[in-house]
């Protein structure tokens, strides 16, 4: 290996200093507020520790055992999985249908696209408040409509299962525009002569969709599945605003809040939830990064 000249070495040291001046602050902040928390959570998760208390006793793996075996933990997983599966499927199916409608070369379509995407950028707190008013069994718009057709409004807030249905509806309302716009971009990347050729071959609309369009969309479907799973598992704002104490709607992140900062003040258990949340979401993302290029191919 050739020995670098003193000049080269000085230059290299200078470059390293400039690099740290430019990237250092960001890297330090990421280390302090993203990496350090991951490690300290692992420690906290082995403690029997009430939030705000200055003393804690060792709990070993009790917090994790509780998370996976207690009725409370089982309830959290049931709600999390239900919420995630339903919202992912619903926003993808509805998003695809909207995208198919948006994929016409007709005037005014851009305004439609903008309106349908817009809830995605709005405050979850604001959105939750708006829908609280709509779902109110006595005074809400939905109740008025149901009474007008002779039905009665369900008691959305009293029953845990109904409350879960309600927050899932609102969550899908807020997020389906994202799926629609991503699907639309996928649809527009399909060469139109391909579809045209199938049409000339007298393939019906449904055949064209299932045999041609959908397989060609498989990279988009994969991308959206992963992204929507990630965001559904991190849902919080709507859940907190519409069901503040989380009866029946305590998905993993909401449960983390309720345990650590809500009524329970159970910091050790909240830390264990944080660690598991990180592991699950990290695994999903890593899976996506590894397989996104290799496995998804046009059929």
């Amino acid at each position: 290996m050739p020995v670098p000249s003193p000049h080269r070495r000085r230059q290299r040291r200078r470059d390293a200093l400039v690099f740290f001046a430019f990237a250092g602050p960001n890297v330090l902040l990421i280390a302090a507020f993203i990496y350090y928390p991951l490690l300290s959570n692992m420690y906290y998760s082995t403690l029997n520790w009430r939030m705000g208390s200055t003393t804690a006793t060792s709990a070993g793996i009790d917090n994790y055992v509780r998370l996976f075996t207690s009725p409370q933990g089982a309830e959290m997983w049931r709600v999390t999985i239900t919420f995630t599966v339903v919202t992912v499927l619903a926003s993808m199916v509805l998003g695809l249908l909207v995208a198919l409608a948006l994929n016409h070369r007709i005037p005014g379509i851009t305004a439609g696209r903008t309106a349908i995407f817009s809830p995605y950028v709005l405050s979850g707190v604001g959105v939750g408040m708006v829908w609280n008013f709509i779902f109110d069994p006595q005074l809400g718009l939905l109740g008025h409509v149901l009474r007008a057709v002779g039905a009665r409004s369900p008691e959305w807030y009293l029953d845990g299962d109904l409350a879960l249905v309600m927050v899932m509806i609102v969550y899908v309302w807020k997020n389906l525009g994202f799926c629609a716009v991503v699907f639309l971009a996928g649809l527009q990347s399909i060469p139109s002569d391909l579809i045209e050729a199938a049409r000339i071959d007298r393939a019906g609309a449904l055949t064209r969709f299932f045999k041609l369009t959908l397989p060609l969309l498989s990279p988009t479907v994969f991308f959206l599945t992963v992204t929507t799973i990630l965001s559904s598992m991190q849902a919080f704002d709507i859940l907190k605003i519409m069901t503040p104490s989380g009866n029946g709607t305590n998905t993993i992140v909401f449960e983390l809040y309720l345990q650590g900062f809500g009524p329970y003040q159970n910091a050790g258990y909240a830390a264990a939830i944080s660690v598991v949340l990180f592991v699950v979401l990290f695994a999903i993302t890593a899976f996506q990064m590894r397989f996104v290029e290799k496995r998804v191919h046009y059929a």
């Binding site: 960001n26 890297v27 959570n41 990630l230 598992m233 919080f236 909240a270």
Partner: peptide
Amino acid sequence: IDFRFKNVVFIAILVALMVPPEAALLPNYM
């Protein structure tokens, strides 16, 4: 900017992208 461990820094940032902010809540509060 030329820096020998640039890729290490980049990967550290990329991995940070995969950490859900909620998982850092409790320690950041402390």
